[in-house]
């Protein structure tokens, strides 16, 4: 569904990604783990058009989307829940969700039942239902994270990119986020998950990639990576 080949990207003259190749098959959950500064967020930004790649290709459902502006990529069905949540703080929770379906509302993607989908999000995230009329800027960090994920889902995406959905959340909320991701996986949502909690990410994922200094160093089935001694030592906090 999503295929990235030899992606090179960076900021100005600083190259962050060195020929990164990742494949996310339809209906699968792939996770990208690695330490801070390895280039996980940059990878997602280069996929969704927030950052223009220097070279390499990004294919979405067989079509080349490399270097397209992010609004064009969204119209092709890629949703990105970005690092730092980036909810629209002076709009209500309900309006944030409606904007998640912007491409559907303007007819760039199959319209479907936008209102019903929003109700479904409220069922999935009951806290958002309680706060639907509130400005998104007044939500707690955990609630904003729920909103960012729900907003991305409102696109009815072919592929969903999730950037550090657990960042800055209390342990209980982290569990809730991972439970939500597991539920999405059951519904066969194709996802690329970037996470700092590598163990939890590998527990829920089908496949994993380890990114080090802008390169993929290890990849394999999530279960295998969990057992890999090098991965365990470096990212899973296991004893030596």
């Amino acid at each position: 569904m999503l295929k990235i080949e030899k992606l090179v990207a960076g900021y100005g003259k600083v190259r962050v990604l060195q020929e990164v190749s990742i494949t996310v098959p339809k209906g699968q959950l792939v996770t990208l783990i690695g330490s801070n500064g390895a280039g996980k967020t940059t990878t997602l930004r280069a996929i969704s058009g927030m950052l223009k790649p220097e070279s390499g290709t990004v294919m979405l459902a067989g079509a080349d989307i490399t270097g397209m502006p992010s609004h064009e990529i969204a119209k092709r069905g890629l949703a990105h829940s970005p690092e730092g949540r980036r909810v629209f703080s002076t709009l209500s929770v309900a309006d944030n969700l409606e904007l998640g379906a912007f491409t559907r509302a303007i007819g760039a993607r199959p319209r479907g039942e936008i209102r019903q989908d929003r109700e479904r999000m409220y069922e999935m995230f009951p806290r958002l239902a309680e706060r639907r009329a509130q400005f998104a800027g007044t939500l707690s960090g955990g609630e904003q994270q729920m909103l960012a994920m729900a907003r991305a889902l409102m696109l009815n995406p072919e592929v969903l990119l999730l950037d550090e959905p657990s960042m800055g959340l209390a342990p209980l909320l982290v569990e809730e986020v991972f439970a939500t991701i597991a539920r999405l996986k059951e519904r066969r949502v194709t996802m690329l998950l970037v996470e700092q909690f590598a163990a939890a990410a590998l527990d829920v994922a089908d496949y994993g990639y380890v990114l080090e200094n802008g390169r993929v160093t290890v990849s394999g089935e999530a279960a295998k990576l969990r057992g890999d001694p090098a991965v365990r030592a470096a990212y899973l906090g296991a004893a030596h």
């Binding site: 502006p69 980036r86 629209f88 709009l91 303007i106």
Partner: peptide, 24 residues
């Protein structure tokens, strides 16, 4: 209107608005 909300969204966070499919 959805277009008006797209304007407010762009004012809030231009990059995030782009991710929604809004031509900012």
């Amino acid at each position: 209107s959805i277009y008006g909300k797209a304007v407010v969204a762009t004012a809030n966070d231009r990059d995030a608005a782009g991710l929604m499919g809004i031509n900012t």
